[in-house]
Nucleic acid binder design. Structure first.
Lengths: 338, 338
DNA sequence: CTGAAAGCGCTTACAG
DNA sequence: CTGAAAGCGCTTACAG
């Protein structure tokens, strides 16, 4: 178990100074070719690799970026992480992945912990609880300390930073509009509480599409669920109580659950009952029938966020104004719609 | 944009030495209470936080661990990461997540990069290509340099390290045995190539269950797919060509695909055709009908791996022998079986 | 062409 | 009780 060799050790073995070794290995023109050769050969033989930590301390940058997500075991968030990881790796950065578990407190602790020097900046999607509380002091503090952050998907106007979002309202509008075009007259919405930015915006898109088509907006046709996983019973009641010919779910989980309930109630899909979900994940592809969805392009969001973050890190001198990047959604047609 | 304050700056402002500040903040008994008070108050006011990088360099440990997985957007692997993240956070460690993309080369580069000092040890699940090549020099090198690694799920005997696996053979045996108990006589297997450890072991479990029940083992009833996502056409042919009353898929993706094909062929599930998958993910829960599966307990695997890794890191002095932890699988009964 | 020194931000054994 | 010095592993401006 030979520990990693250091410059100091090389310099001792070769009877030269540490500076000479350092310069030789970085191929400095200051050093004679002979000396370089000897040192390089020795370093190679002993598999010398510079210590990243020492470099970080010296350079005042770690080449690590962080990402804080509400959960990992989730198609959309893992897609974002995937996009971040790929771009970061291309650029020589490592990615530290942290969980907020939808908890305000955990988000605060994690943000502060990440701000203690182990990373150069981070990407984050707000925890549900944080959006509910509307308390963002931890993020503003971190930004004030000079650490850049990029918010993705679940964002807020109360933090001044780069952001990457999708056009939630437009995406929902397109989906509901498509249902209307295919003949639906009585469309239910299963959504999240308004304090969640994406829930609110998608609800707006739904409403706008109905109004645009001259259809009435009935509050009883809108179900707002607190629990992002679950709510089967509420969905069942909701569908039984109304005479929907279509339902739009703002998550694929909501949509698939609605579809299953409808199937159990003997409705044929898509003949009697059409369904569209938001988020184009594995659930949509594997459901029977397969689910038509509004694709959020999670990986693109992640890649875009990483691009903006790393760009800012590598141009600290230039004052880049904060920017909000809005990605378009795509409607993916599958079997759950006509 | 006030940058983070350092000990040096505090010492200058307060006209004391850096050592005094450092000791005061760590509440050393060497320092007078008065001095401590002043220093602590000042530090608090200026929101002093020690620089992690400097600590890492000093302590020769980073409190970071790595994890290299073949992919992230995958229920099983993201569950493992989840388990790792949770335990690591409890213990004050950060998790650096890296992707091998099932590529040998990317795995080698990533392992070497992680070995350059940014982390104290890492967890890894072998890339498909690495298992095919049977080349593990990069891992043995890293271990030789004194960096502990823990292998999970996709492991090999050619690397001496801690390992966490599930009882793949037994899990497959139980699943197939269950199908037999419920009356199946002609059971198909959709599996992975033998060079993938988990594919091989699950195939063994299938074979053992048939033999145990005195049923013939017919090689034509075993389909080995290279592509882990895809293979619809092969699965369709496979099912059409045989007269199965049940199929066991070694991934939930294989199982769900088989189920869909059978449904399209007009078979009723589970009356005419039963299906069991491996890996208890979201696909199984959302499929129609829901899929009976062998649960791999991904989060438990991750947690156990993190426990073993951190335990080894914090007991570097004691020589802990390498251990292979085998987790039991569970058969989760759902609608795709009688 | 080579090396001593300072410095990144911290801790800690040692002097005073 | 306080502080100077050395050290973690590196880089780089400066001397020689």
């Amino acid at each position: 178990m030979k520990q990693r060799i250091t410059l100091k050790e090389i310099s001792k073995k070769l009877n030269v100074s540490i500076s000479t070794v350092s310069k030789a290995l970085s191929d400095s023109p200051e050093i004679s070719d002979k000396t370089k050769e000897v040192i390089k050969a020795f370093a190679k033989e002993h598999n010398y690799k510079p210590n990243n930590i020492a470099l970080s301390l010296k350079n005042q940058k770690t080449k690590n970026i962080g990402i804080i997500v509400p959960e990992i075991v989730h198609h959309f968030f893992s897609s974002i992480i995937n996009g971040v990881e790929r771009y970061a790796t291309e650029k020589g950065y490592n990615v530290v992945v942290c969980l907020s578990d939808e908890s305000f407190e955990k988000e605060v602790i994690t943000a502060q912990m990440l701000a203690n020097g182990s990373i150069d900046g981070f990407i984050l999607s707000l925890a549900k609880e944080t959006q509910e509380k509307q308390d963002f002091h931890h993020l503003n503090e971190v930004i004030n300390q000079g650490m850049p952050i990029v918010m993705v998907d679940r964002v807020t106007d109360h933090v001044d930073s780069d952001k990457v979002i999708i056009d939630d309202t437009q995406g929902a509008f397109n989906a509901v509009n498509y249902l209307i075009e295919k003949g639906a007259k009585n469309i239910g919405l299963i959504t999240m509480p308004d304090y969640l930015s994406v829930g609110r915006l998608r609800t707006q898109g739904y409403t706008a599409a109905l109004e645009n088509a001259g259809l009435p907006v009935n509050p009883d046709h809108i179900l707002k669920l607190e629990a992002l996983n679950g709510g089967q019973d509420e969905i069942k009641e909701f569908i039984e109580a109304n005479n929907f010919d279509a339902v739009f779910g703002v998550t694929e989980y909501f949509a698939v659950t609605a579809m299953k309930v409808a199937q159990k109630l003997g409705m044929r899909i898509p003949e009697d009952f059409s369904v569209i979900g938001f988020t184009d994940g594995i659930i949509s592809q594997c459901a029977s029938p397969t689910l038509t969805t509004v694709s959020q392009h999670g990986e693109d969001i992640g890649r875009q966020a990483a691009t903006m973050l790393i760009n800012r890190l590598e141009n600290e001198d230039k004052h880049i104004p904060y920017n909000t990047h809005i990605l378009k959604t795509t409607l993916i047609h599958r079997e759950s719609t006509k």
